[in-house]
């Protein structure tokens, strides 16, 4: 039913085509964030949407469609009219869903048109503050000897912290006891409270706790050290191959007029050079991507390579969401 309506729409819109794009946008644009309001992805979306509203001359409204690990919101945009008024802002989960969910009702590569990358939030490996190891080397040795007695928290199936944990266990060939939580907040609570040993989570959630000495930081997963955490070494420095960033991208339903995509791309690039956006991103421990990366080509490349990467990691771990 929905499909037929969508198809009917594509037909009508194809007729009006380019003439339509010149005046675009003529009404508010909805950006679907497939997570509940208040989370890091939602924050990124709201910051960018606010600036894009000014540039496009129309309100860009963030709509939270949470549920099913982000696949519900993404699925909704996949079948939305491709008129440029319904967009999707999703993170790394876009590339893990095809492997995690064996009956995904959409294909991230063919059901969406890419607009551009937005940012890649680095992650940090942290532990409760009275945890024995003090350096990353010691930590890895500790995990090797204690194995399943080490508890690793993550924020739920498909969350960035779960992915980082899988990657960590894969690259160190160890197995820890993973303890899932409902979101990053409760997981951090138990790390701070010393109920659980460690977590690898986005800087968004960990930076203030590291700075306040509430948790012990071992490494950041970015290629270089971070400006607001200068004392925390990168994983690479300590000889651990653990590079992972929670990248965010902006998408439209497949078949959206290229002229509209171009307009949105320009607007996105403008937003990413906005001072407020840069300043707020910095407080989240991240930075906007360059103009070359905020393009459809760069996002498509990222998405394609990440789908491959995570298929390998997830299949090796044998963890699925359904």
């Amino acid at each position: 039913m929905k499909k037929t309506i969508a198809t009917a729409f594509i037909a009508t819109l194809a007729l009006s085509g380019t003439a339509f794009a010149q005046t675009y946008p003529t009404k508010p644009i909805t950006v679907v964030v497939p997570f509940t309001a208040g989370g890091p992805t939602d924050t990124v979306a709201r910051l960018v949407a606010e600036v894009m509203s000014g540039d496009l001359g129309q309100q860009v409204v963030v709509q939270n469609v949470g549920g099913a690990g982000g696949t519900l919101g993404a699925g909704q945009v996949a079948t939305a009219p491709n008129d440029g008024y319904t967009l999707l802002l999703h993170h790394i989960g876009m590339s893990t869903a095809p492997t995690l969910y064996r009956s995904l009702p959409y294909d991230p590569l063919t059901d969406f048109a890419t607009i551009g990358l937005i940012t890649s939030v680095p992650m940090t490996l942290v532990a409760r503050k009275d945890f024995e190891p003090t350096t990353l080397e010691e930590l890895l040795a500790y995990i090797k000897t204690n194995g399943e007695n080490v508890t690793y928290a993550h924020a739920g199936i498909g969350s960035a912290s779960q992915l980082c944990g899988m990657l960590l266990m894969e690259s160190t060939e160890t197995i820890m006891t993973t303890v899932p939580y409902q979101g990053a907040g409760p997981a951090m609570t138990d790390i701070i409270g010393g109920q659980i040993d460690m977590i690898c989570d986005q800087t968004t959630n960990t930076t203030t706790q590291i700075q306040a000495g509430e948790v012990k930081a071992y490494a950041v997963t970015s290629p270089e050290r971070l400006a607001n955490l200068p004392d925390v070494p990168t994983a690479k420095e300590s000889g651990l191959d653990l590079e992972i960033g929670v990248w965010h991208g902006l998408y439209a339903p497949a078949g959206t007029d290229p002229a509209i995509i171009e307009r949105l791309e320009t607007s996105l690039q403008a937003a990413l050079t906005n001072e407020t956006v840069i300043a707020r991103f910095a407080e989240l421990g991240t930075a906007p991507v360059t103009a070359e990366e905020a393009t459809p080509a760069a996002l498509t490349e990222m998405l394609t390579s990440q789908i491959e990467l995570w298929r390998g990691v997830i299949e090796a771990a044998g963890v699925y969401a359904e």
Binding site: G38, T208, A212, E214, R280
Partner: peptide, 20 residues
């Protein structure tokens, strides 16, 4: 959830809620 939203509001205002 409401407090999670408040966290979002803090961050949007440029303040990351935490012990500091």
């Amino acid at each position: 959830p409401v407090m999670a939203l408040m966290v979002g509001a803090f961050i949007l205002q440029g303040i990351t809620p935490g012990p500091n």
